[in-house]
Amino acid sequence: MDIVVKNLTKTYGPQKAVDDISFIVRTGEVLGFLGPNGAGKTTTMKAITTYLIPNQGNVWVGDSSIYEDAEEIKRHIGYLPESNPLYEDMPVIDYLRYVAELQGIDKSKIKSSILNMVDLCGLEGEKHKTISELSKGYKQRVGLAQALIHDPDVLILDEPTAGLDPNQIVEIRELIKKIGKEKTVILSSHILAEVEATCDRILIINDGKIVADGTAEELRKKAQGKEILKIIIEDADRNLAFDQLQQLDTVDVVDLIQGDDQAFEVQSKKDQSSKRAIFKLCVEKGWTLTEMCPVETRLEDIFRELTMN
């Protein structure tokens, strides 16, 4: 099921939380939603789940609009809100049964789908405990289990790995990747590495507006445009090497890296690569090239550049 968000605007008093944003998420796509706190991520997600009614614009999930067919949308959505609200006084298994019943799962399949979720989310040892007794990580798993129990076509996950330990984070990421192959997933996160690891596409939102949209690769290319290499040349005179590098046709700027007198940072001219030329130069001069690696613009840098004014 595709999600189509069109001209969505939501204001809280005088403040525009979401300002006229539009995007489409296709089936089988995992969309990572990035943005600083208060950028409008959660508001957008709440609008997709039909919980918030926007001031302007529309959202379609499949063929259903949030205005006309909210009930139909709700049937196909699995939602994990940011604060992961749960009925703390209920035992895990009772809560999952309640959710399963409300989601309209067939009576004969309720038991198997609960067991399936307990298994998938690693709740075997905790299933008879009251939710309030669980640690934060286990509560988060229960939150995921309630979102997944009815095998929804669309998953909206607001910070799904908050509060999990590193092992669990890896598990959950793999789970999302696996699920994401057949479903439409939107997830928000502050952890950029996580978004990079799980998402096919990244949407960066700031002050209620979309500031970047594309794969991690595309965003990088857009942000840097030029090739940057870090190289280490041994057995060479530093100044000579510097001059020679600077004279290569493809090289734009050479920098000395402080603290290491054999290391250089070489920035190529636009759309050109200097790797081969550097290697040839070293062979010619009899220098030993011990390291050459491309310096990638980190997602963090892109994020900061786009969201800091």
Binding site: K46, T49, Y51, K74, P81, S83, P85, L102, G104
Partner: peptide
């Protein structure tokens, strides 16, 4: 207070 109302109202109930 707990925010569970949000989850409840995003399930297929009116």
């Amino acid at each position: 207070r707990a925010g569970t109302i949000e989850l409840l109202l995003t399930r297929p109930v009116n």
